[in-house]
Design a protein around this nucleic acid. Structure first.
Length: 908
DNA sequence: TTCTCGCCGTAC
DNA sequence: GACGTACGGCGAGAAT
């Protein structure tokens, strides 16, 4: 604890109301119906404050029950306030309990309001130490001075003296006068009748405080204020009310308190109590966090926090000492700082390292703000590091090293020797956790609050790039990244090592995939700007026509892209019956609804066509060309390896995994994914991989037989379910069987199937019953999976990847059922993901070892896309199919379909 | 002007 | 309400 850590005073009552109203839309409740929104809001705000001011004394202040001195002063004070809603009242006790368990001092003083307690404590702190008042109440601005700042933790805004002047147009000293003139409807402070915000401000700016205004009443009529003539009389009439309002609005700063600031030190949290309270409220992520960090906090409390030694290295001798140290180390953590998040454009401007926990260095070489100190040169730093970074035997750990590998490649450095990646360690340990970024992991596993990038770089339009950040700030931030990475590694490696299956997924699949993905990303996909541009223009023409048609039918113009406006036109003006509603109760205009309405009305068809084309244009034909890299002429997606809970990759900027294929106009976009001169696009995809996995996992004889015989699986299913010979299966029967097959993979219910097939629920249930009768192994597998999930709390893929299902035993039926559906789907989707990842590693190794003129350019869940020199097409194609088929040993063959052509569409 | 949320639609 | 996993564009309303 230092003397300069600010005293933090939290206006609990103001947050209580604000959180309640902010969260009321969502109507959060736990499964026993207890409302929890305000609890969550208030507690998350306190957690943020704790993180922001870890060493500060703190008080969380609430209004006392019963009358206050203001009520004695003015009987009508706050008389207009409606009684506290029951849903809020019932949340107060839990909030108090949680605050106590968090170890935070909680204050309630009879006869006064929270504001007054806060004002008094702020006054007591005086100039001794800075005070931060956390509140959502603007009235508190009167407390602001050189030592006191206001923070609204819900909106993350701060207000100091200058901030008050900016926001209100007057200094803090005049805030009470301002409130007295204006009055306050909510608190029933009368103010001066007829004076609102504008007039109050003008008066204060022209004449000074309330007393001055009343002394200079004669000057009022000549002021250039609207209604100045009658204003003096209004003021005169309300003189008493104004004086009373002034008293009411004044925060009392001399309340007698039984505690002193020195006593406002947070205690260690009672984690057991917290766990029970969070569990009761069903705050899942906080429960998880507590459970995950138990080990960490235990360790922490038993020994003092390690002091950190972070240095900025600008001296050649010191730098080379570090390099020697890195070379001699068994393992080191490192991180690059760069100019951009775009890995193709980013330049490295500094590198940080850590060898021992708590100690780290940042070596800048590209910071170029005004008056930046002298730094070592890029050549000297990267030149000395290159041998280490490229040495496969020199073990390194990082957080999301794919990014570092990509940017180092921009400097001609090929990163090797990736011993561990903490992001992937965290992901494999618990893929259900929502984020695996370093800040989150540091808090979760180390109990450390890290410096956030936004803290030092700002945010929004005025965000600085890293090379513009002063070394005083950049150094500790960058060094901390390396230090935290190393410490995370020390924490996560043993956890992973203790789980054989998880460790294998991590070692054999995720880690080796990193350099493979890096290469695919950097290879990029060649797309034709011309073709997409032409398509955009043509679509624009068609959209214009459709728009005109829509206006004619609707009898007026409206925004076709607005579901709200469209809903009004369709269901109010045209009086078309509402088929379905959105979860929020608005009439749905979703595709399936419009398709149905299109039978009977002309407008829905036009809207459907419009939407389809507008989507293609904005998301694809307009957007993709913007993402072409200037130098390579290609688009370079980012594959995310720690996002999808099932183990799949995801892709963004651009997302290459949802390029259209189902419509002709959509396929035109695939035609724009072309091969370079002399090359062809090769696309290889697994056929029915998830159903094959289901056959393998369930060991169902019928399903296995069908796949072994190479049958058309949907036709075979139809033959079984509908009791006809395979050759007699009608198109409709096959279509229905296909829907059943997909539905099974997704854990679909009879209701879902009925909706999909537009049949009755009973009929759908009959299909499902028949299916399970014909494929009893599948039924057994599904039952077993649900049971196992409920018992263990997770499900596994064939390769041992785990997916945690915290809600599998939820009392809330809807949530539990959702978890059960995930339990059914995840082993199949996840095993498929494991398999194609294995295949990618194998194909990559083949491309490197045998060096054909070919490269992988895309992965789309069950498909690999390569760009291959024409002369080597057949050879590469054969090998890719072979390697993909051999990526897993199942009870049935893994069939791979393959095609090639001048573009992605032709390759299908 | 910028941010967040809901809705919708694309892929596998 | 009711079918799993993603990403992303747009409108609308809130915050600024």
């Amino acid at each position: 604890m230092t003397d300069t850590s600010p005293l933090v005073l939290v206006d609990g009552s103001s947050y209580l109301y604000r959180a309640f109203h902010a969260m009321s839309q969502a109507d959060l409740r736990n499964s026993s119906g207890q409302p929890t929104g305000a609890v969550r809001g208030v507690i998350s705000m306190l957690r943020r404050l704790q993180k922001d001011y870890p060493d500060s004394p703190i008080a969380v202040v609430f209004d006392a029950k019963g009358k206050t001195f203001r009520d004695e002063m003015f009987a009508e004070y706050k008389a207009q306030r409606p009684p506290m809603p029951d849903d809020l009242r019932s949340q107060i006790q839990p909030i108090h309990d949680i605050i106590d368990a968090m170890g935070l001092p909680r204050l309630v003083v009879d006869g006064v309001e929270a504001d007054d307690v806060i004002g008094t404590l702020a006054a007591q702190a005086g100039a001794e130490r800075p005070v931060v008042v956390s509140t959502g109440d603007k009235d508190m601005a009167q407390l602001v001075n050189d030592h006191v700042t206001l923070v609204n933790t819900m909106t993350d805004t701060r207000m100091d003296v200058a901030g008050v002047k900016e926001k209100f147009g007057i200094p803090p000293e005049l805030i009470i006068d301002y409130l007295a003139l204006m009055g306050d409807k909510v608190d029933n402070i009368p103010g001066v009748a007829g004076v609102g915000e504008k007039t109050a401000l003008a008066l204060l700016q022209a004449l000074g405080g309330l007393k001055d205004i009343y002394q200079r009443l004669d000057e009022v009529p000549s002021l250039s204020i609207r209604g100045a003539k009658s204003l003096a009389k209004k003021l005169e009439d309300s003189r008493d009310a104004a004086m009373l309002s002034y008293e009411l609005a004044t925060i009392k700063c001399d309340v007698e308190l039984e505690v002193s600031i020195a006593e406002l030190i947070p205690k260690a949290p009672d984690n057991d109590a917290l766990l029970a309270l969070f569990s009761e409220m069903e705050f899942r992520s906080w429960v998880e966090e507590l459970q995950g960090s138990e080990a960490a906090t235990d360790v922490e409390s038993s020994k003092p926090a390690t002091a950190t030694r972070y240095e900025v290295v600008t001296d050649a001798e010191v730098f080379h000492k570090w390099v020697e140290r890195l070379a001699a180390a068994e393992l080191f953590a490192f991180d690059t700082e760069t100019t951009s998040l775009n890995y193709m454009q980013a330049r490295v401007v500094g590198v940080s390292f850590a060898v021992e926990a708590g100690e780290a260095a940042y070596v800048p070489f590209g910071h170029d703000y005004i008056d930046a100190p002298d730094q070592l040169s890029e050549e000297e730093v990267l030149g000395a590091l290159k041998p280490l970074l490229e040495d496969a035997d020199c073990a390194k750990v990082g957080q999301n090293l794919k990014y570092d590998a990509n940017v180092l490649a921009n400097h001609g450095i090929a990163l090797r020797g990736i011993a561990d990646d903490t992001m992937l360690q965290s992901y494999v340990l618990n893929s259900t956790a929502s984020r695996h970024d370093m800040d989150t992991l540091a808090l979760k596993y180390l109990g450390e609050t890290t410096v956030h990038y936004e803290d030092i770089a700002g945010k929004g339009a005025k965000q600085l790039s890293f090379n513009q950040i002063a070394l005083e700030q950049a150094g500790p931030y960058a060094a901390e990244d390396a230090d935290i990475t190393l410490r995370l590694h020390q924490c996560l490696s043993p956890q992973l090592g203790a789980e054989k299956g998880l460790n294998e997924v991590y070692r054999n699949i995720e880690l080796p995939l990193v350099p493979v993905l890096s290469r695919i990303e950097r290879n990029g996909a060649l797309i034709s700007r011309e073709m997409l541009g032409k398509q955009s223009l043509e679509i624009a023409e068609k959209l214009k026509e459709l728009e005109q048609q829509a206006y004619e039918i609707a009898g007026g113009e409206f925004n076709l892209a607005s579901p709200k406006q469209l809903g009004e036109i369709l269901f109010e003006r045209l009086e078309i019956p509402v088929v379905k509603k959105t979860p929020k109760g608005a009439p749905s205009t979703a595709e399936e609804v419009l398709v149905e309405l299109a039978h009977d009305y002309p407008l829905p068809k036009v809207i459907l066509d419009y939407r389809g084309l507008a989507k293609l244009k904005s998301t694809y034909t307009d957007k993709l060309p913007q993402l072409i890299d200037e130098r390579t002429g290609r688009v370079h997606t980012s594959y995310h390896q720690a996002v999808a809970a099932t183990g799949r990759l995801s892709s963004s900027d651009p997302n290459l995994q949802n390029i259209p294929i189902r419509s002709a106009e959509g396929r035109r976009i695939r035609k724009a994914f072309i091969a370079a001169e002399g090359y062809k696009i090769l696309a290889a995809d697994y056929s029915q991989i998830e159903l094959r996995i289901m056959a393998h996992l369930s060991r169902d004889e019928g399903l296995i037989r069908a796949f072994k015989n190479g049958e058309d699986i949907h036709r075979a299913t139809a033959a079984e379910v509908f009791g006809v010979a395979p050759e007699d299966v009608s198109d409709e029967q096959r279509r229905n069987a296909k829907a059943i097959n997909f539905g099974l993979i997704y854990g679909m219910s009879a209701f879902g199937l009925a909706r999909q097939l537009h049949i009755g629920r009973n009929e759908a249930q009959q299909y499902i019953d028949l299916y399970f009768e014909r494929y009893p192994g599948v039924l057994r597998y599904m039952d077993d999976t649900r049971a196992l999930a409920a018992e263990k709390g997770y499900v596994e893929t064939l390769f041992g990847r785990r997916l945690h299902l915290p809600e599998i035993n939820a009392r809330n039926g809807q949530r539990r059922q959702a978890a059960e559906r995930t339990a059914i789907n995840a082993p199949m989707q996840g095993t498929a993901a494991d398999i194609i990842k294995n295949a990618m590693i194998a194909v990559d190794r083949y491309l490197i070892d045998e060096n054909p003129d070919a490269k992988m350019i895309m992965q789309v869940h069950d498909e690999l896309v390569l760009e291959v020199a024409e002369g080597q097409l057949e050879q590469v194609q054969a090998r890719v199919v072979e390697l993909m088929s051999a990526a897993a040993e199942l009870a049935i063959p893994l069939e791979v379909g393959v095609g090639s052509g001048n573009n992605w569409d032709e390759a299908h």
